Amino acid sequence: ARCQGVVCAMKEAFGFIERGDVVKEIFFHYSEFKGDLETLQPGDDVEFTIKDRNGKEVATDVRLLPQGTVI
């Protein structure tokens, strides 16, 4: 199932997405972002798939959504 959220933090090689369905942040590695990383910034709406890696939830297949998609 695809989830939606808003990019809330960006570091050197990874970032965090504030999920739209639950009050929780989820980790994503930049290699999982399908698009131009140069244009990705905090506040952007994205959709993603949640996978379990070593007992921790991570966002994979992260894709940009049109602004205003995530309420």
Rank of each mutant, 00 (worst) to 15 (best):
K56W: 08
F16C: 06
L37I: 13
I50M: 11
K11M: 10
I71C: 09
I50H: 00
E12D: 14
S31Y: 07
F48G: 01
T60N: 05
V46I: 03
T39I: 09
I71R: 15
A9V: 04
L65I: 09
C3Y: 15
F27T: 13
I71W: 08
F33H: 02
V22E: 06
L64R: 10
F28M: 04
L37W: 14
G43V: 01
D36C: 10
V58M: 15
L37P: 10
K34V: 13
V58H: 10
F28I: 00
N54S: 15
V23E: 15
I26R: 01
L64M: 15
V62D: 00
L40V: 06
E57Q: 10
V22T: 11
Y30K: 12
A1N: 13
F33P: 02
T69A: 11
E57N: 12
E12N: 11
D44W: 04
T60C: 14
V23H: 15
I17S: 00
V7G: 01
R19E: 04
G55K: 10
V6W: 08
V70P: 14
L37A: 08
G55C: 11
F27S: 09
H29Q: 13
G35N: 05
E18M: 15
V23P: 12
S31E: 08
R63A: 11
E32C: 03
D45I: 11
C3P: 03
I17L: 03
K56T: 12
T49S: 09
K51L: 09
I17W: 03
D36I: 06
D45T: 12
D21S: 11
E25A: 12
D21T: 08
L65K: 08
D44L: 12
K11F: 08
G55S: 05
L64S: 07
D45Q: 12
F33A: 01
R19V: 10
G35T: 03
V62E: 02
K51M: 06
I17K: 00
E18R: 13
R53F: 15
Y30F: 13
V22N: 11
C8M: 09
G20T: 10
D44S: 08
C8W: 05
V46R: 01
E12Q: 07
V6E: 04
R53K: 13
E38P: 08
V7C: 01
F48W: 11
T39G: 13
D21K: 07
G5T: 03
E47D: 12
K34T: 10
Y30P: 01
M10G: 00
V23Y: 11
V70A: 14
Q4I: 14
E18I: 15
T60E: 05
A9F: 04
I17N: 02
L65P: 01
V70F: 08
K24E: 12
G43R: 03
L64E: 04
A13Q: 10
K24C: 08
G20F: 07
K56Y: 06
E32F: 00
T69L: 05
K56N: 15
D52G: 12
C3H: 15
Q41F: 05
F33L: 03
A59Q: 01
K56F: 07
A1R: 10
V7K: 02
K11Q: 09
L64A: 05
E47W: 04
Y30T: 06
V6S: 11
A13M: 09
P42D: 07
G20M: 09
K56D: 06
C8K: 15
G15L: 00
V7I: 08
A13E: 12
G68Q: 13
L64D: 15
T49C: 11
K11D: 03
S31I: 04
E38R: 13
I17M: 01
G55R: 05
I50Q: 08
